[in-house]
Design a binder for these strands. Structure first.
Lengths: 201, 201
DNA sequence: ACTATCGTGGCAGAGTCTGCCAAAACAGGC
DNA sequence: GCCTGTTTTGGCAGACTCTGCCACGATAGT
């Protein structure tokens, strides 16, 4: 069959990308909740049924092909852990993600604006984070000091907190676009946590 | 009209409570996603249409009448802030919530078990937290030190992080029910954060 | 008992998502 | 270039959540 698989796959990927583009554009114009799948499908010249063959859900057309998911973050974290303490490792890992995002900031701020048009979408976005956290916890846990009873709890707290910092910095950046630098916001957020007790500058 | 309003209101409240009970029981037996609203309604002897007059969504039948929502947490936080630093104020505020929960732990662990049967439900739970956070941030912000540019960012990080600690401790407690004390887990979680840099016992 | 008000139930409809099956498009080999 | 087997597609029917609408019945105050 030669290249046949390659051909099919490439065509599939192209259509997938086009669907994501069309969908994002429509969501920007009319809002997420106000844009039925039928409209996306007909705008892309396919049937609604086929849409669901490319994306399992309407949400996936937004969140399906995102950079964070395409990088192996657990491995990256693992690497940092050989040289740094747990918190700093998380910091550097997420700095890397932030730098990736910076190269496509246009697309990302469009996306964030769309996400904020819908409650369901914000919840979905959080769920994404949770899944990411789930993948980082087992990697971090062995590096956490202290009694074994609490190791898992502590690892979870650190990972969730780190993602929280990331998300907060990201949102803050999106709201003050241009005024502040994404990486600076991230560093501030990460610096706030260890000083929680005093919370001074 | 005398007590008429009181009567109506009381009847309404009673039916609301009964619906919540019936729903929780059914969710435990068959799982959340596998239990259509029609089944809850007929189990309670009402029409599906009427169910939606008592709860705007299926989720609300689970999350609608929860202790955290029934206490004025911003006020409580405000009070603690007059005596403690921001982080410790958040800690004490959430300790209070934890103590409330402890008095109804049976109901709460049932609820947590149900929440974990559905992705949509977990997302909804997170959304709850977000809303709670939104109400605490304005209260905390004035108490946060540092340059004004970053005050809002820092307040958000602290609030989200505190809720993350709470949630993590809560889940951890639910998983190791009996073995550990909820308040102890909460204290451990809160103690982990300021030591993030070293993460030792 | 009478009437105005309120809660209720049924109906129709939009929207997401799934299973099923037939038709079309496509790759390969001849 | 045609044939054949596989893949992709489209349409249909259906489950489920949620909303607007309207008529019916219960209830409260006079």
């Amino acid at each position: 069959m030669g290249e046949s698989i390659g051909i099919r796959e490439r065509a599939r990927g192209a259509l997938r990308g086009e669907l994501a583009d069309v969908a994002l554009r429509l969501f920007e114009e009319r809002g997420y909740d106000e844009t039925p799948v039928d409209d996306i499908a007909s705008a892309a010249g396919i049937s609604p049924r086929t849409f669901y063959r490319y994306f399992g859900t309407k949400e996936e057309v937004l969140f399906g092909d995102l950079p964070p998911t395409s990088v192996d973050l657990p491995a990256l974290l693992q690497d940092h852990l050989t040289r740094l303490d747990p918190w700093e490792s998380l910091h550097q890992t997420l700095r890397h993600v932030a730098e990736n995002i910076r190269t496509e900031r246009g697309r990302w701020s469009r996306l964030l604006r769309v996400v904020n048009t819908s409650d369901a979408l914000r919840a979905g976005h959080l769920e994404q984070q949770m899944n990411l956290a789930q993948s980082l916890i087992p990697t971090l846990a062995p590096a956490v000091q202290g009694p074994a009873t609490w190791r898992d709890l502590r690892a979870r707290v650190l990972v969730y907190t780190a993602l929280t910092c990331f998300d907060t910095a990201f949102s803050h950046w999106a709201e003050h676009e241009g005024d502040i630098e994404m990486l600076e916001a991230l560093d501030i957020a990460f610096a706030t946590v260890p000083n929680a007790g005093s919370a001074q500058s």
